[in-house]
Computed example of a mutant assay.
Amino acid sequence: MARRPDADRFSTATRLRLLGEQTAARVYRSQSRRQARRSRLTGRAAFLALVVCSLVVALAYPMRQYVSQRAEIAEQQRRMAEARQRVEELRDEKARLQDDMYIERLAREHLHYVRPGETGFITVIDPRAAEERRDDESTADRPWYSNVWNGVDNADRNK
């Protein structure tokens, strides 16, 4: 039995056509599977996003409360440290006030007390001289010779 060349060609053409149809069917099936997967992933992703948003909304208020309470605790700790420092300063002041020499020095400085036999001096400032002194402070940016002549003029006016 000898094969005819047309029969081989026919069978090869048929095979190629069948092969092409099978390939096309596979491609179509894989595309539809991908689309099905994509649609499932999109639904899953939407559900996951919904769950994440729900968690964020549910945890937002407690987190805000936690942060504000931590800030308040830090503020109270700072105030407590300041109060401890003030207590230490007051204890030191109390200890100093137990010393007679410290009390005497305060009395001399603030109350102008003197010991028996000492002469106390108090500096009295003339209000007009205080005004001139303020004027002198404003003349600091002028040249020195201008200040000298102003001093001579003021002395002449006060005679």
Results as ranks from 00 to 15, higher is better:
Arg70Asp: 01
Gln35Gly: 04
Leu41Gly: 03
Gln65Glu: 03
Pro62Leu: 01
Ala74Glu: 09
Val51Lys: 09
Met80Leu: 04
Leu16Pro: 02
Gln31Met: 14
Gln35Thr: 11
Glu93Met: 15
Val52Tyr: 01
Arg37Phe: 08
Arg37Val: 12
Val57Thr: 10
Thr14Trp: 07
Ser68Glu: 14
Thr23Gln: 03
Arg84Trp: 11
Arg70Cys: 08
Val52Pro: 00
Thr42His: 06
Ile73Arg: 08
Lys94Asn: 07
Leu55Arg: 05
Val51Thr: 11
Thr14Tyr: 03
Ser68Trp: 15
Arg79Thr: 07
Phe10Arg: 04
Ala60Glu: 03
Glu82Arg: 13
Asp8Leu: 13
Arg40Trp: 06
Tyr66Pro: 01
Arg44Trp: 07
Gly43Asn: 06
Glu75Ala: 14
Arg9Ile: 15
Ser68Pro: 02
Arg29Trp: 11
Thr42Gln: 07
Tyr28Leu: 15
Ser30Pro: 00
Arg17Met: 12
Ala36Arg: 14
Arg17Pro: 01
Ala71Lys: 12
Leu16Ser: 15
Gln22Val: 14
Arg26Tyr: 00
Ala25Leu: 01
Leu16Gln: 12
Leu16Arg: 12
Leu50Ala: 02
Ala58Trp: 04
Ala74Asp: 11
Leu59Tyr: 03
Gln69Asn: 13
Ala74Gly: 06
Gln31Asn: 12
Ala13Arg: 14
Val27Thr: 13
Tyr28Phe: 13
